[in-house]
């Protein structure tokens, strides 16, 4: 990887797995990229919930820790 390419990409952790995205990308961009836009999910960045309406303004940074969760059956 060249230096110029390195500037353009960051790595964040999504549900425990590394994920690359373009520098300046938002949490909403990430949801689109992994096919979850419009799905019933909630997003937490570095242990703080980001409301759906704020996802397009939530710019991600290198090493951000994301959790993307949904509802499942439970008691």
């Amino acid at each position: 990887m060249t230096l110029s390419e390195a500037k353009q990409e960051i790595v964040v952790t999504v549900n425990g797995e590394p994920h690359r995205l373009v520098e300046g990308g938002t949490a909403h961009d990430l949801l689109v990229a992994i096919g979850l836009d419009g799905r019933p999910v909630a997003v937490e960045v570095n242990e703080v919930v980001v409301p759906r309406a704020s996802l397009p303004e939530c710019v991600l940074r290198q090493d951000d820790q994301l959790e993307i969760v949904t509802l499942v059956g439970g008691g």
Partner: peptide, 19 residues
Amino acid sequence: VTVAVRRERLLNAAGENIL
């Protein structure tokens, strides 16, 4: 009814959801 909160399975996002 009660529901639980779990990580979305990223590889199977198009799968069935309880909702």
